[in-house]
Design a binder for these strands. Structure first.
Lengths: 326, 326
DNA sequence: CTGTTAGCGCTTTCAT
DNA sequence: ATGAAAGCGCTAACAG
């Protein structure tokens, strides 16, 4: 029924060890012998069983990927980056969604452990002690992607968020904005947003600076909140923590009869496809989403193969893409 | 180092078979014994090795998911649906991107085979003979998600695309449109788009009906093409094969000085989040993206557990969500 | 209700 | 350069 390495061995008149060797290039095999084995393999339509191989070698060539929600544009792009590089190094990914729930996240590390993944790439809003404990117990190499642990002891890939926040602020200042609102998710929802807020708040030249928190940051929720805010406050610049919040900002401003960018300027984080598909097109602090994933995966392969690593805490570059909203 | 079922057995003073039994509920175990085993398990921090289990039982509880590109909003939403239901039934998913390339798609079926997945959920633009051959050779249950094979022999989950096309047409007719353009991807790019086009073309009351093909259907490519078309043709209604194409249609119309919906009406397929985040909000033929995934996965679990199945070709309902663009 | 015993299909020493 | 044999950690008869 299923053809095994043993069948191939018999067909090629060699031992299974030899078949294993040509399969894995694990030792030198005489050309003639190799040819016989290869022939036997495709004569029988043999496919090595990765599960058996995993049990014997204690390496599964699969990576656990834990994210809050793949259906979010940002996350989906990151996952694509991860999978591309994983495929390049002949790894596969087991994808799971945590919805950002701590208990589920910790559980998932456990099931990844059972699955014997070789490594884990982890996205979450805020890394907590429970996460770190779970990683340590499971004894699996972990790379944090677009997030970081408080102690900075786990390898991670990020941008410099404080600086990005400051860049956004400086940019608006230079554009003449003085009354600025930072639209973001609820405090503590994401470490990154907190960092950016800190960077922004450093811009002392603002005459007014308000932080507006919108739960989980959805457009529908943000729109009314922003409309209300703009009705009662003088604002000439907005920094949004995501494209979605940026778009809500633009629409709220337009609804309030303001012209974007004349009366009010909007700059948003991320640069998903949304940013260029709306009118006016959004100026953004572009984040290297695909690279977050790709670099995380690459870093993980280095960790797994004991290759030298420059830095366990990789900082990717962000940049401002100027468009019509500022 | 790693604690095995054998360690647990010794700790609990029972045989490994008994431990296996309490782990899997595979036979009745005396309460007292079960307690001893459970105690031993968490005293030792034991985690069953899913790989060993997979080898012994020939079931891995993992599903291969092959999609063109997770970073596409539609696909990401489907994947979320798949993963949610998979998790519910204690399956995991191995996610891979094919970029819609036939050779890669066929390869992936092979590697899924090596990985010993219990089943495959498959998304692609167009199912071809090579796909079907690969499925048959691998002998793995497959569910086609939001696509179907020409012969209709492989289980699948879809909407009624011909009818959806007709519905879109009828809707525009009823809104008074007579000169309609169907904006879609290149011919043959997707079976589904072809079906919809067929449904649309059935609306004989149109005075003019043009099919405009935009490569792979990206906004940036579509915008200039549509602008050009609207400049030289009288059009009062557009059916777009995706939200992205719908948005391009709206913007092209606005650029041409037309008012949407007064001068021209736009209805698009999909209903991703984009549809409600733009102005005017888009009327859509809503597709049950999440359910495509969820139902596909549910169907697959039935296939895997030999549960009775009503239909191997599930048709989900689509519906028109009327908004401001019509 | 519980224990014994073969495998599952492969990798990996250890010989030769 | 190749073969023999011992596991990897678990499930699944088969006994009892």
């Amino acid at each position: 029924m299923t053809v095994t390495i043993y069948d191939v061995a018999r067909e090629a008149k060699v031992s299974m060890a030899t078949v294993s060797r040509v399969l894995n290039g694990t030792a030198v095999v005489k050309d003639e012998t190799k040819r016989r084995v290869l022939d036997a393999i495709d004569r029988l339509g043999y496919r090595p069983n990765a599960v058996a191989r995993g049990l014997a070698s204690k390496k599964t060539r699969t990576i656990g990927v834990i994210v809050p929600d793949v259906s979010a544009a940002f996350v989906a792009e990151v996952v694509r980056g991860i999978e591309d590089i994983a495929a390049m190094y002949e790894y596969h990914i087991i994808l799971t969604n945590s919805d950002g729930q701590l208990s589920r996240e910790v559980d998932l590390v456990g099931t990844m452990w059972e699955k014997q993944v070789d490594g884990i790439i982890y996205m979450t809003h805020k890394v907590q002690k429970e996460h770190v404990d779970a990683f340590e117990q499971a004894q699996i190499p972990v790379v944090l992607c677009a997030t970081e642990d408080p102690e900075r002891r786990i390898p991670s890939v990020n941008i410099d968020n404080v600086r990005a926040g400051r860049d956004a602020g400086q940019y608006l200042l230079q554009k003449g904005c003085r009354h600025v609102v930072f639209v973001t998710t609820d405090e503590g929802y994401s470490v990154l947003a907190d960092r950016r807020g800190a960077g922004l708040a450093n811009c002392r030249e603002f005459e007014s600076f308000v932080r507006l928190e919108i739960g989980d940051g959805r457009y529908e929720k943000a729109l009314p909140r922003l409309s209300e805010h703009l009705r009662s406050h003088a604002v000439d610049g907005i920094v949004a923590a995501s494209d979605e919040l940026g778009l809500a900002s633009i629409h709220a401003a337009q609804d309030a009869g303001m012209n974007v960018p004349k009366d009010i300027k909007v700059i948003a984080f991320d640069n998903t496809r949304l940013a260029t598909m709306v009118r006016p097109e959004m100026t953004v602090i572009a984040q290297p989403m695909y690279d977050f994933g790709a670099v995380s995966m690459r870093l993980l392969t280095k960790l797994l193969h004991d290759e030298p690593v420059d830095s366990y805490s990789v900082i990717l570059l962000h940049n401002i893409v100027e468009r019509q909203s500022t």
